[in-house]
Amino acid sequence: MMVIETAPVAARRLGWLLAEVREILVETPRVTSLLLHVAGWQGHRAGQHVDIRLTAEDGYQAQRSYSVASPPEDDLLALTVERVENGEVSQYLVGHVSAGDQFQLRGPIGGYFVWTAATGGPLCLVAGGSGIVPLMAMLRHRDRRSSRAPTVLVYSSRSLEDVIYRDELDAMASRDPRMRVVNTLTRKQPEGWMGYGRRIDRALLAETCFPPEQNPKIYVCGPTPFVESVSRLLVELGHNTRAVKTERFGPSGA
């Protein structure tokens, strides 16, 4: 049987809280952010996620996990949801839900994939599609804290209109010389696009990420195949496998 030598950190049980939609922001044609008021919310760290549970009038329930998009400094909790074809919950959250609607939520969950300003940098974030969500929470937290950690975000999207938080990321990068945003558009590039236009490969990472000698904190998030490919490439470039934190979102929804 388990023998506990010293008392582990006391933690509260995860219980279901009441979330109410306060605001809805359309991010891209398929992606919407919900700003929630969560009664009894105890705070979170950037990178954590929540479980939400919807209940239909006949009692039917569905549950999903979503990364928190907002930093701990914000009053409202933001979830950014991509509408997935045949996605029972995402079809509801993106397009059907209105301000005032309620559902249950529990969290924050997951202390492994987190970054706090105290952790410092250099910080290398690699996002594939909606994998940007927990990384955006980290960037927003970094911004709120006026962190000076040198940071690069490598963000892979299908096309320019699929880039979530585009304006906000551009604004962050333009006012902070220590932060860089590198977009790569894998399927469609606009006229005159000067940036990367291909899937992330070894050369792209070598050109953008901090080298292993600088011991960057690395976070990779997106569909599982994306995360595994990027992680493998980072290790090939000399990064310690344990220095690369990953958050796989599962099979691609595309």
């Binding site: 999903r64 996990s65 979503y66 969950i109 979102f249 099979p251």
Partner: peptide, 14 residues
């Protein structure tokens, strides 16, 4: 209530 842990991405699989 189980956690499906399919992030904002593929709740079909989850």
């Amino acid at each position: 209530a189980p956690s499906t842990n399919q992030r904002s991405f593929d709740d079909r699989a989850g």
